[in-house]
């Protein structure tokens, strides 16, 4: 009888030990898998000099007031246009509502997904967007367009 109890106790002890080792084993296996599946942080679109080259749209395509379109900087979408007073304006093209890319429509900036509308300063004026677009600074150099992060202006979602 006593002997049986002792066996029972050591059996439980062994099972407990096995459980603990098993859990440790599982944790050791899960962590690398978790890290493997977790996305890596995307590279900062702005290089060492704080600027990003504009691609998929050329300065010729925004040479006159009222011209504009979609392009990219780093791995992000860009909306760039020249306003009526001749100034180049650039925004991260991600709509602040649901993340579609907005379109330049001359008088306004419009998102076809849910009808979000912004004025040419990027302010949300109609539809569902909760915030203005993220504005970027533009420089034109040797016929190439670059954008840079504007400090203090708007929410700096770009490159986050």
């Amino acid at each position: 009888m006593k002997e049986a109890e002792g066996t029972e106790r050591s059996r439980r002890g062994f099972l407990g030990f096995l459980g603990a080792v098993g859990l440790g084993w599982l944790a050791a296996a899960i962590y690398p898998v978790f890290r493997y599946l977790s996305p890596q942080a995307p590279p900062d679109p702005f290089g060492e000099d704080g600027r990003a080259l504009v691609e998929k749209i050329t300065s010729a395509e925004v040479s006159q007031p009222g011209m504009g379109g979609n392009g990219k900087y780093g791995n992000r979408g860009l909306l760039i246009f020249r306003n009526q007073s001749g100034t180049l304006k650039a925004f991260d093209s991600k709509c602040t509502h649901a993340g579609c890319n907005v379109a330049f429509e001359g008088e306004r900036i419009y998102c076809h997904c849910h009808g979000g509308t912004y004025d040419l300063e990027g302010r949300n004026i109609a539809g569902p967007p909760p915030r203005p677009l993220t504005e970027l600074g533009v420089v034109e150099e040797d016929g190439l367009l670059h954008v840079y992060r504007l400090t203090g202006g708007g929410e700096s979602e770009a490159g986050s």
């Binding site: 998929k56 979609n70 990219k72 909306l79 709509c95 579609c100 890319n101 907005v102 379109a103 076809h112």
Partner: peptide, 10 residues
Amino acid sequence: DPFGSAPAGI
């Protein structure tokens, strides 16, 4: 086109 504007009818 991940960088183009979204089409209508999404």
